[in-house]
Design a protein around this nucleic acid. Sequence first.
DNA 1: TTGCAGGGGTCAA
DNA 2: TTGACCCCTGCA
Length: 302
Amino acid sequence: MIAIKYKGYEVNEDNNRITVDNVNDFHPVHIFECGQCFRWIKQENGSYTGVARDKAVNVSYADGKLEIANSTMEDFKNIWFDYFDLGRDYSEIKKKLSKDEIMKRAIEFGHGIRILKQDLWETLISFIISANNRIPMIMKVVGAVSKIYGDEVSMDGKSYYTFPHTDKLAGSTLEQLEVCKGGFRCKYILSTAKMVRDGIVNLDTLANMTSHEAREKLKKFPGVGNKVADCTLLYSGTKHDVFPTDVWVKRVMETLYFKREATFSEIQAFASDYFGELAGFAQQYLFYYARENRIGTDRSNN
DNA sequence: TTGCAGGGGTCAA
DNA sequence: TTGACCCCTGCA
């Protein structure tokens, strides 16, 4: 048993299990089902099992205590602290974003949302797969890509698969990749993988660019437009001031803010002006609120 | 049972 | 600005 203080948290390691005390603004359902990730599966006991950063873990949370099973203290410090964005004060963000009744409602609804710091490469490929696709399908395709091209890791006697590194995917043929059922997106994945491998676009440089520059850089990849680029930047924790605008976000903005139809650029301009540096966080609360309540569809309660 | 629309977007015309 | 695109699900 090891017990340490780490960046304000009390962290314990016992029997390959990490517990972190006094974690606020954290709700696994909100975090894992707000559309930012595709590799976390809900278990019968309400915990989530997933693979990230080449590790399989099980995550649960209750009464301020976060538990990460199948993890060491080293992994917590090197991976999970940043992955779960534990260094960020979400209470402060929520306070700043609670500037109107709409945001107050959305934040109340998704109060435990955190924006994960996922691997940039994995996020890029995952969101290329997300184009014109549904979440269960995206999860199946990402799972298949990992199973075929990733490495096996085990937890509790069960096998899991890491997301493949760039070289592995880039070395595939289109025919092999199509087994994963990515459909027309497979050719985008393969071309993107080759471009990354060959250094045509260097993902490591994105963090040092402005959000606009980073988005334009990402759009050089086939299958990447504004939406996929912004999702990649936000869900990898690279840029938090982007406002990925998909049909759900468009609907919620039109229904609750504009009260009329609005164009993509109108919504972008509004978000940038109104939410500023916190636009990405606002987008997550709004997206989760809109999708779970079917805002803007004929099945909504509004 | 079969058939068809449409989905958290991008590309090409 | 508009249709095609893989594949799957939901719903007649």
